[in-house]
Simulated scan of single mutants.
Amino acid sequence: MKLTNMFKSAGLIGSLALGAGLSAVASTAMADQEYLLTVTRPNQLHVIDMSTNEIARTCDIPGPFGSGAMAVSRDGTHAYVLGNNWEDVYGFDIRTCEMTFSAVQSTPTVQVKSFQSVAVSADGKELYTVQNPIKKHLDRFEILEPRLAVFNIEDGLNAEPVRTFPVDRRITKIAATETGEVILGGADVKAINPDTGETRVVTKLANWERGPLWLPPDAFAMHSQGEQANEYIMPYVTAKFDSEEWNFETAEWWWGMSRVDLATGKAERMETIPFQFIIFNFITDPRDPNILYGSFNTLSKHDISTNETLAVHEMPHTYYNLNISGDGETIYVGGTSSDISIHDSETLDKIGSIQLTGDMTTSDLRVATIRD
């Protein structure tokens, strides 16, 4: 080969290598960035880079600790946290910790509590809470009707509700659908139109009609971490008896769930696995809707298509909630204490840990995905 041809060949190979390297860099630059969000005492929002499992920044939330419940905007840039003893909502740009929204819900004469209920509309324009108000009289408290409060996020700091509508009691977790409704997790799962106040039953639970052999379900949504599968899960426990005598010792005990597709607002209700241990929260594997993970004193993996528990990992203490990476490979288990336990989703083996500055107690564990 002539020397000039050798240089040309080397130059071509170098160009190809450089091009491949630039493509890899560009691909990395364009990759989605996932952040794990949670709140700890005394009252701080932690933004954790899930590519390194390191705390990227910590945002101070005004006032005392609330419940740590939060909602994340669909573009992943903002988190809205329920604080001040369950009364106020504060919104932060998680990239800078700038507070961009606040809603003080109580007044000198009416105290408002929102029990875990905060959600953001799919278009990012509205924020929703369920307000449970009491009126303060000189000699007594008067319990007022619960209501859905609608805020315009663009109103920024010190926002006031632009609309309110009466809703049921016992509502905890709520979520906004892409069809414009707000899912209300209460005795039954309902949906409300936040423009008109019109409601519909999504799934009957306390009021289901399954005959005399089924125990009405015990349902409660403290945490609903469904952003990776774009869903809302209301777990419940029920039992099927072998006779109308309702012998609790011979009954079949089941975990079940109402699962709402937030893209369509449609729901499915089913018994998932036999009741063998307490599960405080379920999440779905984003790669397979039949695979669920649960947490409390154990981390567990289940196949609901066969009603089987596939794996169980004993935890060193109680963990109220969990979440999952977008690729479905990594489980994050948190809440209750000051550590987040990291696990391989295939085996449930522990692969890491994140130590925080305070207890999470009832706080959510959310994933914010910022897409380029």
Rank of each mutant, 00 (worst) to 15 (best):
R200E: 11
E245H: 11
S300R: 04
H302T: 13
P289Q: 04
G180Y: 02
A219Y: 04
D242P: 00
T298K: 14
A191W: 01
R287A: 14
I273V: 15
E308K: 15
E227P: 02
T306Q: 10
A187M: 12
A206F: 08
A251S: 12
L292H: 13
D218R: 12
H302S: 13
N307M: 12
D261R: 09
G256C: 10
P212V: 10
I192Q: 01
S300N: 04
S224T: 15
V260Y: 03
S258K: 00
F275N: 09
I192H: 00
A191T: 00
N247W: 10
P286Y: 08
A191V: 03
P235Y: 08
T298P: 00
N207D: 14
N247Q: 11
L292Q: 11
G197S: 00
A251T: 07
M234D: 05
E231H: 12
N207F: 05
T250C: 06
K190Q: 10
T284E: 09
T238N: 03
T250S: 14
E227Q: 14
P212E: 14
N281W: 03
E252S: 14
A311D: 06
P217Q: 09
E198M: 03
T203I: 10
D303G: 05
P235W: 06
N193W: 02
L299I: 08
R287T: 14
W246Y: 07
R269I: 11
L184N: 02
I291K: 02
I278T: 13
N290K: 07
S258R: 04
G294V: 13
P274K: 03
Q225H: 14
P286N: 08
L184V: 01
L205M: 06
I183K: 00
M222S: 12
Y293N: 04
T179Y: 01
D188E: 05
T264H: 11
R200D: 04
G265K: 05
E227F: 08
N307D: 07
R259V: 15
I278P: 06
M222I: 10
K204W: 05
T298F: 10
D288Y: 08
A267C: 05
T272L: 04
L215Q: 15
E252D: 15
S243F: 04
K190L: 09
